Simulated assay, not measured.
Amino acid sequence: MVFLSIANWVRSRGPDEIWRKRRVFKLAAHYIGRRRNCYSVAVRNVHRALVYATKARQLKKQDMIDLWNTRITAACEQHNITYYTLKEGLDRSNIMLDRKSLSDLAAWEPRTFECLAAVAKQKIDYDGFIDGTDRKQPTGVNLNLKDVMLEAWLKENKK
């Protein structure tokens, strides 16, 4: 489209407005009634929905972190070690696992998590570290690294 004067160019809102409205109507397609057909109503509802979607993404991340922490804490209590002691022992042993990996191991591979907890506890005992963050003692079973070693497990399976 060719414009001979700047005034005509400024007054022309055609194609850009059509595509802008079309984008909003596509986002409002699943709404009912005027919320989907009337632009002034649809644009308010679409903007509100996009704000909720943005907040929901952050809340989903936080919910997953809370779930991972709960799983790890529960598994740590089974093995008589605190979460802080587990993380500190694994860090000192150069075992760099994040929350998601630890929670997956705690939920789906408890023997592997038991070995990691034993390694962390052994490293903490060697270093003489005292966990002062949690005064309440866990009520699980005491771990010993020799009890969960791979060689002992292999000997049991060969028999």
Rank of each mutant, 00 (worst) to 15 (best):
V51C: 09
R99W: 09
S103G: 03
K87Y: 11
L4A: 13
I95Q: 13
P110D: 01
L90E: 04
H47S: 15
L102W: 11
V10Y: 05
W19F: 07
E114R: 14
M64N: 13
G33V: 14
K121A: 05
N142Q: 05
H79F: 12
R20P: 00
E114F: 04
H47C: 10
C115F: 04
V46A: 08
A117K: 00
I81P: 02
Y83P: 02
T54L: 09
K26Y: 07
K121H: 10
R36N: 13
K21L: 03
A120Y: 07
R35I: 01
F25P: 14
S5C: 12
H30F: 11
H30T: 13
E114Y: 03
I6E: 14
E17T: 02
D104Y: 10
D66C: 12
N45I: 04
K60E: 08
E109H: 05
D91I: 02
R11S: 10
G33H: 10
H79P: 01
E151G: 04
A106V: 02
E88N: 00
V24M: 14
N45R: 13
I6G: 03
V148S: 00
G89N: 01
N142S: 11
A107E: 14
D147T: 10
S40W: 10
E17R: 06
S103M: 05
Q78C: 11
G132W: 03
D91T: 06
N157V: 15
S40H: 10
P138R: 02
R135C: 07
H47K: 14
K60H: 04
D66K: 14
I95R: 15
N8Y: 12
R71S: 13
L4T: 11
L145I: 11
G128D: 02
S5P: 01
F25H: 12
W19C: 01
I72S: 06
A7I: 00
C115D: 00
Q78W: 01
F129Y: 15
W68A: 10
K100D: 09
W108Y: 13
